[in-house]
């Protein structure tokens, strides 16, 4: 199946000379949830803005379901819904009017039943006659999602959807996103919350300083870069790692009471038996040991650090 979003050689240099994106290639499959991670200023919003038509690319090509975003912008844009990062809403309009406006703007005939279903799914039905200025920040975020869904898009961009959102709304949004994916909508989200990506995404992309460092299936990424950690809780603290243990590249933690060894669980030889033997030979006693998988957050931090 051809990708629903195809980005090739995408670059953006702003007027002041700041290079926000450098030669980005990315393909998104239909129906997947793709999380784009990156620190502030990495180029996430610029990437989304170019695809949606808000920012003009300096170079490169973007197609949405096979339609070029410049030459065939009408079809391309009609397939996209965008929830921006900032709470940019009208103030004096009612919830119903602003969501209906968005549907019309995207070229769709009025469909009160669809607007009603959208508002109900976002727990906005009771607020439909409220002016937006009277809503809380969380409710405004829901309104932005309702506006983006009003024209039944095939691709939904969520730019930092959890920014400033309470736990309840975040859970609601995750449920809504999963339901949308079930209905065939492709979801592309940017987030600072690693747990959000870990919880929701099928695939993860990491962007740093305008370059796409990687884009991989979440499980593959965790397996490939995750590694595991063996932690030995020592009986007596060490002030430094003995030279005899140098080949294992250990680190000390917990004020010298923990000896940490990072290893690749997929390797045939993990080095654990020999490490334990050497520790025993050196007379270093330990009272407990455990292993754990590296989290996505640790992977992300190391990728961004290495990519920077």
């Amino acid at each position: 199946m051809p990708p629903v979003l195809s980005i090739s050689g995408l670059s953006k240099t702003y007027q002041g000379g700041f290079q926000a994106l450098t030669d980005v290639d990315l393909e998104i499959e239909k129906g997947e949830i793709f999380a784009l991670l990156g620190p502030n200023g990495a180029g996430k919003t610029t990437l989304i803005s170019i695809v949606c038509g808000i920012v003009t690319a300096t170079a490169g090509k973007v197609t949405v379901d096979g339609h070029d975003i410049q030459r065939d912008y009408r079809v391309a844009r009609s397939k996209i819904g965008l929830v921006p990062q900032e709470l940019t809403t009208d103030a004096f309009e009612t919830v119903w009017d602003t969501v209906s406006f968005s549907r019309g703007l995207f070229g769709k005939a009025p469909d009160p039943a669809h607007i009603e279903a959208t508002l109900k799914s976002l727990s906005l039905w009771d607020k439909r006659k409220e002016k937006i200025m009277n809503l809380s920040g969380g409710m405004k975020r829901r309104v932005l999602i309702a506006k983006a869904l009003s024209h039944e898009p095939e691709i939904l961009f969520l730019d930092e959807p959890s920014a400033g959102v309470d736990v309840d709304l975040r859970r609601d949004m995750w449920a809504q996103v999963r339901a949308l994916r079930e209905s065939g909508v492709t979801i592309i989200l940017t987030t600072h919350y690693i747990e959000e990506a870990e919880e929701m995404a099928d695939r993860i992309g990491v962007i740093s300083q305008g370059k796409l460092v990687l884009a991989e299936q979440k499980e593959t990424l965790m397996q490939r870069l995750g590694g595991k950690e063996l932690t030995l809780q020592l009986q007596d603290p060490l002030s430094e790692i003995p030279a005899e243990l140098g080949e294992w590249n250990l680190t000390l933690g917990d004020d010298g009471y923990a000896l940490i060894y990072t290893f690749d669980a997929n390797e045939e030889r993990t080095g654990i038996p020999s490490l334990l033997r050497r520790i025993s030979d050196l007379g270093i006693g330990f009272k407990d040991l455990n292993t754990r998988q590296r989290s996505l957050e640790e992977i992300f931090v190391s990728l961004v650090r290495n990519g920077a």
């Binding site: 949606c52 038509g53 808000i54 912008y73 009408r74 079809v75 391309a76 844009r77 009609s78 996209i80 965008l82 921006p84 900032e86 940019t88 809403t89 009208d90 103030a91 968005s102 703007l105 995207f106 070229g107 506006k147």
Partner: peptide, 14 residues
């Protein structure tokens, strides 16, 4: 001024 121009620019309107 309010930032809602994003919707106009991202819509399929010429």
């Amino acid at each position: 001024f309010t930032g809602t121009i994003y919707e106009l620019l991202s819509a399929p309107v010429s």
